[in-house]
Nucleic acid binder design. Structure first.
Length: 289
DNA sequence: CACTTGACCTGTCCGC
DNA sequence: TGCGGACAGGTCAAGT
């Protein structure tokens, strides 16, 4: 989610006011809308603003339709203005090659000559055009839990939401988007380390104090990650093609074999809820009540 | 119903 | 150098 939020902010500073001239796509699953809908509600539409819900990017258009985009793990949304085709020259730029490239699934061409490229190596990401009014009722939105960075996401709310997954591991519960919207694998591991909770702990065995600590850690870590421009594990870049630096601040994620920054013992990697999971065996003890 | 596993894809890395 | 297998940031449908 921090990565998506960083992209949203970038796009929201460059796209509003631009008018779509044409859209090219080369992978049908990426963009399942009919050609008729594309012509009617996307072509000639002007971008109003860019919003986010959970890990979804929402480009609101003046056609009263919204373009929803899910980047999954390897998706990118990279903007190139007509005069700066390569984004080159910037010392931290990490995606400076020619676009479209072999991973480009959709290209949105604006009337002023600028372009937005949707690249996705693994083809898991998608776009979907929906009427703006229908978004809240759509199943993509309806089952999502609360936004962890909203002001009303309190420890009490987290306790209530976790009660839905009382018998599963806390790691699985955190990754369940219907419990909380927006926590992914990196931030689940990082916040559990911060709260000193073993990732395999069954939710009902967590004390209220641990959950309160976890709520605070989630907020702190997500905010820090946004500030650092997100996490670049391999593919991630923001709208300008630059990578994020959060992983150099990460305490356990991808740090197996290294010393725990809190106690100095060796960080381990195991599998929990089907996902690679990093933790400190000393700081994060498995408590079975 | 609650919960876990496999599938969707491409690319990379590691052991043989 | 090549090949097979495991694994990768997410989310569903299908299974138990």
């Amino acid at each position: 989610m921090p990565e998506v939020e960083v992209i949203r902010r970038g796009l929201n500073s460059i796209l509003p006011g631009r008018v779509i001239k044409a859209v090219d796509f080369n992978w049908a699953k990426t963009f399942p809308n009919s050609q008729a809908d594309v012509s009617k509600f996307l072509i000639n539409a002007k971008v109003k603003n860019i919003a986010r819900r959970a890990k979804l990017i929402v480009i609101n258009l003046d056609s009263d339709y919204s373009l929803l985009i899910h980047l999954k793990m390897t998706g990118q949304l990279v903007f190139r203005s007509s005069e700066l085709q390569f984004g080159a020259g910037h010392p931290t730029a990490s995606l400076t090659g020619h676009l479209p490239d072999k991973s480009t699934r959709v290209t949105i061409n604006f009337k002023d000559g600028s372009q937005l490229f949707f690249n996705d190596q693994r083809k898991f990401g998608w776009m979907l055009l929906l009427p703006t009014k229908a978004l809240r009722l759509h199943s993509l939105y309806g089952r999502l839990g609360p936004e962890p960075l909203a002001p009303d996401f309190t420890a009490k709310v987290l306790k209530e939401r976790l009660a839905r997954r009382a018998n599963s591991s806390i790691k699985a519960a955190l990754l369940d988007q219907s419990v909380i919207a927006g926590v992914g694998n990196i931030y689940a591991d990082e916040s559990l380390w911060g709260a000193k909770i073993h990732p395999a702990t069954i939710v009902k065995n967590l004390s209220p104090q641990r959950i309160t600590k976890l709520q605070a850690e989630l907020i702190n870590i997500l905010k820090l990650a946004i500030k650092k421009g997100g996490s670049t594990d391999r593919n991630y870049v923001n709208a300008e093609g630059k990578s994020g630096s959060y992983l150099s601040f990460a305490r356990v994620f991808r740090r197996e074999g290294q010393p725990c920054p809190r106690c100095g013992r060796t960080i381990k990697k195991i599998r929990v809820a089907g996902r690679g999971t990093h933790y400190c065996p000393h700081c994060q003890r498995l408590k079975i009540k």
